[in-house]
Amino acid sequence: MKQTHNIMVFVLSMAVFGLSDLVTELIPDVSIGPVEIGIPYFGFVGLILVMLFNPLYAALGASFGELVFGDLLMGDFGGIGEIDGFLVLFIGLWIAGLLVKNPSNRKMIAIAGMIGIGLDQFMSGALDVMKVGFGVADLEAVEGLPESIVILELIENGVEWLVAGILFGIIPAIYMVPRMYGKIEPLMGIRPREPRDVTIGGAVGRLALVAVIVLAFAAVFAYMSEVMDGTGEWAPDFVDQFGQSFIWIGIGIAAVVALIVILLSRRNKPTGGTSISRHV
């Protein structure tokens, strides 16, 4: 019973968020020098889904839909390069969903939305910087390069946050979430979400939120200070290990957090497919 509802939420999120991703591909980007201003994705679609349904399954579905519809089926799939994008979007959306207890509270929607999409953008920017650090053998030896990359990423992700998080994020979400609350659920034959539905998950989520923010900050600051203060005498293999560990730390943290929470939420459920349908 519960499991089928979760599958329903997953499938719906995947389909609609995937579709929205296709639509954004149609809207052209404007390039101003090195910075591309376009719509990375329609944040509001993801926010609506995570705020109205089970945030975990909605966020999983949405980020998976982005992969499948927007990239794989369009013949533009970056393979492994997409996995970090998937994880950060998932974490961002999922946390946004956990932060909302009452989907008719507009202030809550706005704050949660800004934090969720902000996290996604921040983490993806940080990962990009790490990738450069990892990919270039002696980054710090090249004058001006680290700074310019950080600046570019800041501008780019800042703009994306404004576009996907505010303009096409919380503004439509503030309008649509309360209107859909209590209206879309009966169409699917499920009960509207209640504040108590997210409390246990919410606690875990907030923990995860804090953990991710702190770790991400720590990682980037540590990395930045090393790069900035570097004397240019690093042996390549050190950079090698250093960068490597950071990419994998980033991805690893995200993966571990996700895994723990999935396991935690699994434990509360009965097992067995047919027996589930019997426990109504």
Binding site: P34, V142, E143, G144, L145, E147, S148, I151
Partner: peptide
């Protein structure tokens, strides 16, 4: 270009 601008080579 940005790196050059920021004093690189």
């Amino acid at each position: 270009v940005l790196a050059l601008f920021l004093g690189g080579s």
